[in-house]
Design a protein around this nucleic acid. Structure first.
Length: 424
RNA sequence: GUGAUCGUAGCUCAGCUGGUCAGAGCGCUCGACUGUGACUCGAGAGGUCGCGGGUUCAACUCCCGUCGGUCACCCCA
């Protein structure tokens, strides 16, 4: 019978054993972020819509068409968070965190975007990211990139590529904009429809167009790097030097322009070939004007967001198939009397064992119980039946080696101790 | 928002141009083996063929709609 209720479109349930992979990744990430000196921030799942409009820009796709937006019972205009940076800045301002000087925060949790699902893209997805506030220099850019890169290194993701670019600042970007307009305008008629629409509003977005109609003009477009102002050029060159020092390989990719309005100077993406069309697993950059535009002081900032679904997809593509290791012990009781006798032992095992203690409460044959133990991938089976009860013993079966061993049936503590000792 | 494609037992799928098509393998339960798991053999449970209309004497099979999956565009993590 088909399920009557299903998860909403573009959302997923994570059940064992996949949920365990999520937990393991999240634990690794928290450890790494804390090693870099970052503290976790948690913010509400929803915020006032206005925050996102002001934060990410009212002409971005996120704001124009991708927000889960609703009015609450008091008619407030709210939205499920489509990205983390604006809420983090809001919270930092609200709690006066910028008064303390440089600030390093990381976050991990869901975001929501109303999009058509496809490979690596969901309506609820999960991001890990950091925000580093208070450093205008390229050292902070390096720190952010190094943290993201370290994650790919730790997991041995060999095909990860760091794409780097600079978008310039208020001084050089307007000049570049003019240059782009001059370059594309004469060919307006032959450009793709999207690009024609976008030209006046945000000409830089043409650079990452995949439409073949645009390709020849994108090819010949002047690279932004050639038009950077002195300060931006210096910043960019210094960052590249730092990356070399840190041993982080990168490619300068002038087509990385990013979709959110708030970026300036450094932008970067980490891509992997296994992800399909949505090839970016991590994206970020510098956004020196954002805090101010949200009503705060002039605080420079740099950060990134990393997609956990995509990261897990990469890990899965890289994983070698194989049985998971056997863990824990299956407690097997044959008959009501044995079930009762096993209670104090199971209780104790669950106190002292780090691995799982499995139990099944049906009346089954030993054969059936052992099948269940096998399915649970248990390492040991603790068997108590009428024979053992009579002899005052327990059978401890090693499910890997298929060997039996006998333990005296005593107080739970003693059995647990004997079991732990014999298998440590 | 646009396009393509798919939607049959828990899982992976057969089912040709409409008329014993409601099936297979795996899994599950039970048994062969009064109490020893990855093998073997047998039996059994389980499906309103996504949902709703329509065409037809007759639809899982054709048409329309709808919901959902997948992939791509757009865009992004």
């Amino acid at each position: 019978m088909p399920a009557k209720y299903t998860a909403p479109r573009g959302t997923q349930d994570f059940v064992p054993p996949e949920s365990a992979r999520w937990n393991a990744l999240e634990a690794r990430i928290r450890t790494l972020a804390e090693r870099f000196g970052y503290g976790e921030i948690r913010t509400p799942l929803f915020e006032s819509t206005e925050l996102f409009v002001r934060g990410v820009g009212d002409t971005t796709d996120i704001v124009e068409k991708e927000m889960y937006r609703f009015r609450d019972r008091s008619d407030r205009d709210m939205a499920l968070r489509p990205e983390w940076t604006a809420p983090v800045v809001r919270a930092a301002l609200e709690h006066h965190l910028f008064a303390l000087g440089p600030l390093r925060l990381y976050y991990i949790g869901p975001i929501f975007r109303y999009e058509r699902p496809q490979k690596g893209r969901y309506r609820q997805s999960h991001q890990f990211g950091i925000e580093c506030f208070g450093f205008a220099g390229p050292e902070a850019d390096l720190e952010a990139i190094a943290l993201a890169w370290e994650l790919t290194r730790v997991y041995g993701i060999g095909d990860a590529v760091l794409n780097l670019n600079s978008l310039g600042d208020d001084e050089c970007r307007p000049r570049y904009r003019e240059a782009l307009l001059e370059h594309f305008r004469p060919n307006l008629a032959t450009l793709s429809e999207d690009s024609r629409r976008r030209l006046e509003r945000n000409p830089m977005r043409l650079l990452d167009s995949k439409d073949p109609a645009d390709a020849p003009f994108v090819e010949t477009a002047p690279p932004l790097e050639s038009m950077l102002c002195g300060a931006c050029r210096e910043h960019f060159e210094a960052l590249k030097a730092y990356l070399d020092l840190a041993g982080i390989p990168f490619v300068v990719n002038p087509r990385i322009v990013r979709g959110l309005d708030y970026y300036n100077r450094t932008v970067f993406e980490i891509t992997s070939s296994v992800l399909g069309a949505q090839s970016a697993v991590c994206g970020g950059g510098r956004y020196d004007g954002l805090v101010r535009s949200l009503g705060g002081p002039d605080v420079p900032a740099v950060g990134f967001a990393l997609g956990l679904e995509r990261f897990l997809m990469i890990l899965e593509a890289l994983a070698i198939a194989g049985d998971s290791p056997r863990r824990g012990v299956q407690a097997i009781a044959l008959g009501a009397q044995a079930r009762a006798a096993l209670v104090p032992i199971v209780t104790e095992l669950r106190r002292v064992l780090d691995e799982p203690t499995f139990a099944d409460y049906q009346d089954r044959k030993l054969l059936a119980h052992l099948k269940i133990a096998d399915r649970n991938r248990a390492r040991l089976a603790l068997i108590l039946g009428s024979e053992e009860l009579a002899a005052g013993e327990l059978v401890l079966r090693d499910l890997e080696n298929r060997t039996d061993r006998r333990l005296p049936l005593g107080p739970g503590k003693d059995v647990a101790a004997a079991l732990v000792e014999g298998n440590s």
